[in-house]
């Protein structure tokens, strides 16, 4: 019993960090405080599943899942996106643009799905601004392997989807550091 109390106290040391994480995740400070409390209490119910030293990892995933579940339950409606018709475009032009956009997404989806899991993950992390070394550490790959996967993915996307416009660094061939 004493051990359980000590472990709960140990968990509570992460409260503030948890609240920050939830705010960063899009919660208001009040929501984050309540949600953090729920997560701590829930986690404490099955504290035996949390190995020593892995408290923060466990809490972080639990908090993220709580936040998503809560959002699904309350179903907060996002503000409706209002699309304004471009007066310079005719209805026919807009239709053509939409079709082109849909075909592009389909081509991209098919081409990206053909890449290896490592290549897909390298590109995704690169699109989030990770450096080559950070990607290598995260995916347990050698930096050279990261660059070769990046290059291979970029070449494949060029062949199957097309040349990316400027500014899409994650799809370029060179794989420069962001």
């Amino acid at each position: 019993m004493g051990d359980d109390t000590e472990r709960f106290e140990e968990l509570c040391r992460y409260r503030e960090r948890l609240e920050h994480f939830l705010v960063h995740f899009g919660r208001s400070p009040e929501d984050a405080r309540d949600l953090a409390q729920d997560v701590l209490i829930d986690t404490n119910k099955h504290i035996d599943r949390v190995p020593l030293g892995y408290e923060w990892a466990y809490l972080r995933v639990a908090a993220r899942n709580h936040a998503i579940n809560q959002a699904t339950r309350t179903k907060v409606d996002a503000p409706l996106a209002v699309e304004y018709a471009d007066p310079a475009r005719s209805a026919e032009e807009r239709l053509i643009a939409e079709q082109e956009s849909r075909r592009f997404r389909e081509r991209f989806h098919a081409a990206f799905s053909e890449l290896s899991a490592d290549s897909q993950q390298v590109v995704v992390l690169r699109s989030r601004g990770f450096s080559g070394d950070e990607i290598a550490r995260s995916l347990d790959l050698h930096p050279t392997a990261v660059r070769s996967r990046q290059s291979r993915a970029a070449k494949h996307l060029r062949e199957r989807v097309g040349v990316p416009p400027a500014g899409v660094a994650w799809a370029d061939l060179i794989g420069d550091e962001p």
Binding site: S101, F104, R105, H109, F112, P165, V168
Partner: peptide
């Protein structure tokens, strides 16, 4: 296709 199209396609 624009930069946003590529980023949206990846997010999707």
């Amino acid at each position: 296709m624009t930069k946003d199209d590529w980023n949206d396609a990846l997010d999707t």
